[in-house]
């Protein structure tokens, strides 16, 4: 029984790793090797010079698009944690006449996936003149009702004694939040932050719509453009894919604890 379990899991694991193997094999081989009639298991010799070719290819804005992706992902992660954290705390802990109104506005957006409203959002963002602009890529994604809602639920369960101690020490809401609540919630912030970063790095539809000039492409848009274009250098395309995944693989390996927590927190709203 035990052997069967491990056998089944191992087969599944191999199948799950095949795509990663293909990205590396195809990216580090020669075109002849990957188009050979019989399967080449691994390139005869690893072609490190493929990297130089990729990064010096003027038709593939690899460096520029990676930088764009990084800037967008970092700004969206930091911005979302900042804005949604504050709002979630305010909704959870500061009594106000309009508290319920704002909360209902937040909850109503939970039923509407952002992707479905990309046309309306594009209409507004293009009116603001933010097409092919960093602002258009970053700002509309900052105001996540879902993240705010998760923060509110989390802060509702934050131990009140800690806040009351801060209050006795003379701190107002602002001081309490930054000096007591945030430092004691690092794990939760990290969990939501990792999810926000991964989501932002991998998003495609919105950057495709908004980043129309080549200079504003994110790495996903750059990859997609070469994938769907006529003349493609397959080896370089796979190497570019490998380069685009690398930052996230690092995040996955280094921060998996937070990532797993983030998935559990964001996947199921209790």
């Amino acid at each position: 029984m035990k052997v069967l379990r491990y056998a089944a899991l191992s087969v599944a694991a191999v199948l799950f790793l095949i795509p990663f193997y293909l990205v590396l094999r195809n990216g580090l081989a020669t075109e002849q090797e990957i188009t050979a009639p019989s399967w080449t298991l691994w390139p005869q010799e690893i072609r490190w010079e493929n990297f130089a070719a990729l990064f010096s290819n003027p038709a593939v804005p690899m460096v520029r698009s990676m930088v764009n992706s990084l800037v967008v992902a970092v700004l969206q992660t930091v911005g979302q944690l900042f804005l949604c954290g504050l709002a979630g705390y305010g909704l959870a802990r500061i009594p106000h006449r309009y508290s319920n109104v704002v909360l209902y506005l937040v909850i109503a957006t939970l039923m509407i996936p952002a992707a479905v409203t990309f046309v309306p959002t594009f209409v507004v963002v293009s009116t603001l003149g933010w097409v092919s602009d960093l602002r258009g890529l970053v700002i509309p994604g900052l105001f996540s009702g879902f993240t705010t809602f998760l923060f509110r639920q989390y802060f509702l369960n934050f131990p009140r004694e800690l806040e009351e101690a801060a209050r006795i020490d003379g701190l107002g809401h602002w001081g309490t939040y930054w000096r007591v609540v945030v430092p004691n919630s690092k794990g939760f912030f990290a969990a939501l932050g990792v999810i926000a970063f991964v989501t932002s790095w991998n998003q495609f539809l919105w950057p495709l719509v908004i980043a129309q000039d080549q200079d504003s492409w994110t790495v996903q848009v750059a990859l997609s453009t070469f994938l769907t274009s006529q003349s493609i250098d397959v080896v370089q395309l796979f190497l570019a894919a490998a380069v685009s995944i690398a930052p996230l693989v690092v995040v996955f390996v280094a921060l998996q604890r937070f990532l797993v927590r983030g998935v559990t927190e964001t996947g199921i709203k209790d």
Binding site: L83, A87, P120, F143
Partner: peptide
């Protein structure tokens, strides 16, 4: 309380209106 509430919630609420509710209304 009133000032503190808007200090915390205001920036997010303003963004939510401009980038979620205005698009839906305009649409």
């Amino acid at each position: 309380h009133g000032r503190a509430f808007w200090l915390f919630v205001g920036p997010f609420a303003a963004g939510l209106l401009v980038f979620v509710y205005v698009p839906i209304g305009w649409s």
